[in-house]
Design a protein around this nucleic acid. Structure first.
Lengths: 255, 255
DNA sequence: CGCAAACCTTAACATAGGTTGTTGCTGCCC
DNA sequence: GGGCAGCAACAACCTATGTTAAGGTTTGCG
């Protein structure tokens, strides 16, 4: 296997034409979408895309950016304290949505690209999803709403991780979250997926120091729960990992 | 001053007739509301209220409860790990909203009353706020949306607290959050407010042990940043506390 | 009035995780 | 091809916070 660089920094992208899939797949799972709606999503992903290199700033803290969809690459929402400590509040994966439609608060976090990233304008989607019959929304409206609600669920998971779990548990939990989300976007096999994150990035997400992330990864390898090298993770014992992390799958929509 | 018990457990309530104010005040600050809308809020708070004692369960984990408004008393969203560790994900104060209108995900957290609590049915409010012209919402719709967005901001603050701040900083930050929110609801004076929380509850919110919360409170008292006794807090040096906590006020609506 | 429960406080000790610093590997660029 | 940058790995030491256990205080209640 080619040892892939952890910080590819803009080298490889998805095969051309595959860009639309994560967003279509994800939204399609959150609500049943009409062919017209699927076409609209594909159109948005084909439309003029914004490209940023790794470490590029998608929007600064305090901004109120127009809705965009992450078409490819990884990003995060991050907040910095005055003395330079950083906390990654959430990871953004292909198929995730970034801004919000107009009545919105200034974002308390900046959004940063972690790899090279492609962003599509999502305004047409929100316009189509919400202009119609408000309470009983159309498929697209429901899907966008569900995406928003899921993000909140992830935030709560993150709070529990940071507040009450050990380093080992936090790492397990994060890996399971990422696996499930990537699978929804069609970017994970059963047990393995690409993890283009530095241990430093993991540390900022897990509320740990880099050194301790390293220790924890080593331990988890020794315990034969995961393999992690060259930016690829393989979950060797999903059930064991699940029970370490006290993980419950992210729920889908219900009404 | 009467030493108020930390866990009043149902003794005192707000003066009769004052129930409507926190919700009206809060929503009125999030968007300008018509007299009809204000009346509707007052009506909801007068309507048949659900009452729960301290420690009562407002809704269990995994539920998808109809929207309610917290009219008086304190509550929280809480999640428990398999081995009994608990994390308070958010505090709910008078004027806060609890459920969500129908297309919703099963709540990943239970909601628990921390004191005696009164809940109003908020369904009429959501119905009135969102049935109308969808994208450019009426005042009430905007206010409800803003409340939802603010909750997300609070969650992110909580993530940063737990992930990157020390015990001392976490406590400072939480006190400032509560002060601002209570002031919005009309329940805090300039520097002081009622804090009906056990140190154990604080510990579960701050991701600390009870003992360490106690140590931290002691230290903060010694530093003359706060007074805390009998369920009343007084912030002696707001600016110092702010700089310790790296606190930024919760933003209001902008579009 | 006196007891019991719930809560706060303190101390002594244990440990998860932070900090600092060094090493070595890999890919990249001049 | 040598030096440099970014990253993983490892060690030694330090500190914030957790744990256990014990007393002290307040409140509520019989």
């Amino acid at each position: 296997m080619l040892p892939v660089r952890l910080h590819p920094g803009g080298s490889e992208g998805p095969p051309p034409g595959a860009e639309a899939q994560p967003l279509q797949r994800r939204l399609g799972r959150l609500a049943s979408l009409s062919p017209a709606e699927m076409a609209m999503i594909a159109e948005a992903c084909r439309g003029p895309l914004r490209e940023l290199p790794a470490r590029g700033e998608i929007h600064p803290e305090g901004a109120c950016p127009p809705p965009a969809a992450l078409v490819s690459g990884w990003a995060c929402r991050i907040r910095m304290l005055a003395d330079g400590r950083r906390q990654i509040v959430a990871f953004l994966l292909p198929g995730d949505l970034i801004g919000r439609p107009p009545p919105c608060l200034p974002a308390p976090c900046a959004a940063l690209a972690l790899t090279r990233v492609l962003l599509a304008d999502a305004q047409p989607l929100f316009a189509a999803g919400f202009t119609e019959h408000p309470p009983t929304q159309t498929g697209l409206g429901r899907a966008l709403r569900a995406a928003e609600l899921q993000e909140e669920v992830l935030l709560r998971d993150q709070v529990v991780r940071l507040g009450r779990q050990t380093a080992y548990e936090r790492l397990a939990s994060l890996l399971l979250e990422l696996r499930q989300r990537l699978e929804t976007a069609g970017l994970a096999q059963q047990r393995g997926f690409a993890l283009p994150l530095t241990q430093e990035v993991l540390a900022d997400a897990l509320g740990l120091s880099v050194v301790h992330v390293n220790r924890t990864v080593q331990q988890m390898r020794r315990d034969r729960l995961i393999e992690l090298r060259g930016g690829q993770v393989i979950i060797l014992q999903p059930e064991a990992l699940r029970s370490v992390a006290d993980w419950q799958d992210i729920p889908g929509l219900r009404d």
